[in-house]
Design a protein around this nucleic acid. Structure first.
Lengths: 241, 241
DNA sequence: TAGGCGTCGATTGTCGACACTTTTGGCTTG
DNA sequence: CAAGCCAAAAGTGTCGACAATCGACGCCTA
């Protein structure tokens, strides 16, 4: 068959899929903090607001459920996942584990392009730090770490990272500004990138450990300080299949 | 509100939720190889077979989709994910990353109980190796690794492991017997457990690396040898949000 | 005879409806 | 006045239906 001269990768226009769109909207609302932890996500309300029926909303909710953003409580509906300090600690443990691997792997297969991209991102963060816009900085921070995971060349690892980051953003967005000294965010990332460029696995792991470890303790501490809140769902559904 | 004396976590009788049941059935069918990679999962057929409507089937399919077991192709339906040799390699890379962490952590908080459980599982595997029942051995193998992840005390890590294992079982089930020497499976696990009991992080990592590395090369090699097959879906949906 | 086109059947995406459960609000009662 | 109970309202779980789309088969054309 030779209908087209070449199967040149076209941009794959317009996912007609309502489910994806709803999923994305809900995700945005959650990470932006517009749907705070514990909030009920009423199908009917969402459907009404978007001018669609409940079916696509339910399916989107299922997607977000197994991504850990929502929690399904039978006969009661979906709720934005509430993260205890312990949850966040677990998430950071996984993130550490993932990013360690990602950084080492990224270093192994570092190309001039990705290296430049990382440098550029770091510069961007430095700039933003001067302008002092918390939300934007958090976003840039996320992108920097994401670039590293992308550079590891493992699509699944990237998806995993995105999942962890999404869940964490449930609370990060809540906490707001994480760094007292806005310049610190760039300073703490510099050694990580330097280690990747240098390509010493041990040094990479050490710096990643330190960098994420700091954030981890910080966030967990902050979260523990404002834990006293919670009227929400009734029980964890723990399965052991 | 205090309807019940206490919101003690009840066993949540009879999951009224059809979605979970369908999800589980589909998962079973996939890991048991009854739904082979690339197979189409027709909603109507599944619904008819289970005597229910299509809605719960669709929702279950969404769950499995974001677990990586199914792949949604818009307007075409759901298909059992096909794993290329590269996919499997990526999965093993993640598994390595996860299990390393799990084993080290398990060693750190090793209790006599979990230690006994691990020993017991290893003995079981030795027994099964003598009886030589491939399917059962694979299951026991899986359980051993799962126990380690459980012992790490991170619920999320366990879920992650389950997810990776599910995906891998898509192909493991296909390959069938992995070990020429059935006794080998017990022998290769022994050093891992020994290292965990000894509690030397470096030695643990080394043994886990070796053990999983062997399996990884083995499976990837086997899979590459029978890759020539594939009429299936049409394109990867790669998002970069 | 090989290749392209139109039509038909099958399947998906979405919707509205119905039964049942949970929640809420008010009312009764100690 | 507070606590408990009852009834109405809201929301979920599931279903069957309908339009739009995809794949396949067969026909027409070069």
């Amino acid at each position: 068959m030779r209908t087209m001269s070449q199967p040149v990768g076209l941009p794959v226009l317009a996912e007609s899929d309502l489910v994806r769109q709803v999923a994305r909207r809900l995700t945005d609302a959650i990470v932006q903090g517009r749907l705070p932890p514990g909030a009920k996500v009423a199908e009917a309300a969402v459907a009404r607001e978007l001018g669609i029926s409940r079916a696509p909303v339910r399916e989107a909710a299922r997607l977000l459920e197994s991504q850990g953003l929502l929690m399904a409580s039978p006969r009661r509906g979906f709720f934005v996942r509430e993260l205890s300090a312990r949850d966040v600690d677990e998430l950071y443990a996984l993130r550490l584990c993932v990013e360690r691997h990602a950084a080492v792997e990224a270093a192994r297969r570092l190309t001039p392009e990705t290296r430049a991209a990382l440098r550029r991102q770091l510069d961007l963060m430095r700039d933003l730090a001067r302008r002092d816009d918390p939300a934007t900085i958090v976003e840039a921070d996320y992108q920097f770490h994401r670039l590293i995971c992308e550079a590891a060349g493992n699509a699944r690892l990237l998806r995993l990272f995105d999942g962890l980051a999404s869940e964490l953003r449930i609370v990060i967005g809540l906490i707001g500004r994480l760094y007292d000294d806005p310049d610190e965010i760039a300073r703490t990332h510099e050694p990580v990138l330097a280690a990747i460029e240098a390509g010493h696995p041990e040094r990479i792991v050490a710096h990643v450990d330190h960098h994420i470890g700091v954030a981890r303790r910080e966030v967990v501490r902050l979260l523990e300080s404002l834990t006293p809140q919670g009227p929400p769902p009734r029980n964890e559904t723990s399965e052991t299949p």
